[in-house]
Design a protein around this nucleic acid. Sequence first.
DNA 1: TATAGCATGTAATTAGTTACATGATTAA
DNA 2: TTAATCATGTAACTAATTACATGCTATA
Lengths: 187, 187
Amino acid sequence: MEPRADHSKTAYVILGMLALGRQTGYEIKSLVDISTRFFWAASYGQIYPELKRLEQAGLIRGKEDRTNGRKRRSYELTAAGRETLHDWLTSDELLVRELRHEGVLKLFFSDVLTPEEQLEQIRRIRRAHEATRQQLEEIAPGAREADEARGLRFTLLTLDWGIAYQDAIIDWCTRAERELGAAALEA
Amino acid sequence: MEPRADHSKTAYVILGMLALGRQTGYEIKSLVDISTRFFWAASYGQIYPELKRLEQAGLIRGKEDRTNGRKRRSYELTAAGRETLHDWLTSDELLVRELRHEGVLKLFFSDVLTPEEQLEQIRRIRRAHEATRQQLEEIAPGAREADEARGLRFTLLTLDWGIAYQDAIIDWCTRAERELGAAALEA
DNA sequence: TATAGCATGTAATTAGTTACATGATTAA
DNA sequence: TTAATCATGTAACTAATTACATGCTATA
């Protein structure tokens, strides 16, 4: 087996989005902004150059398009592109996972604060996740519609994952607030 | 009120670690690697230059030190540094939160897979979080000891947060696997 | 005496965001 | 006619990782 060139994650985002029926850089970015950005972001500065690279590599095929009135460059997957996507989706490589959470970082250092400030720290984390949960709920109806129209399930399942994640943190915060509050009263 | 210069998050990691009793760049990095890296990473390439900047800014004070046999540069917080840390910890600015999760990204595109491959996708996510959970459990005893020795609570609380997060994802995966498995049997 | 761990640092690279430029079309 | 949206792109910047260089000390 020859060593296949490995691609940036942005490349797979593009291949995946084309497989889900998007056609242009703009459409890909629009969908990213209401879906994968919660667990994988991508900017124009990544998407457009990557589209060119993928075309050069023969994984996607682009053509000038005027079907929507506006002129635009629409892409579709080639057989090689579909295979590359499938290989990535089913590969057993270690999954990249990174988390940056300023709230938890602050919590880590919160021993230097007063009990009231400590409580507020956790409240702020909770509120941040409640806000995200709200955002996800607002996305849900549109996602449900789009999923049904295209016969998809996994975009919605992913949204459910996101809500479950928010809920878990919210619950943890609620518990921690109660315990910390109780401890503060005793003292 | 004058507009205080705002610092990189690495700066706050350093100030916080000094407040918790670390003294050198090496010690800070060592603790980061078994604690904050799960929600906020930092490399030598960030830490050492930032230590110099912070000293220049008067937030920390460094001196040559030989107490441990080896020569090293140990730092402590100045009053200004302690205040800067406190301001950040109690500020109401929007918390930076970023998540990159390749497993969930793959899940998002999994409509193109067979039912068995879809199931495997979720299993891989679960396994990744089980492995992280395991790592956190291994860190726990040492963290408990260190916390007790120093009279700290929040480092352990943060660890508990991390475990709760892993558990929530593991539970979600278990449920999703069951539902997907059941649906596959019907078909 | 050799290996592991303590300790400090930087150069080179890669990744990623931000901001801007440009222009067309559609809907209010 | 004007604002919003569709659409493509890049230059400049900032952040971050990786890999390397260096050398000491404690321990097996």
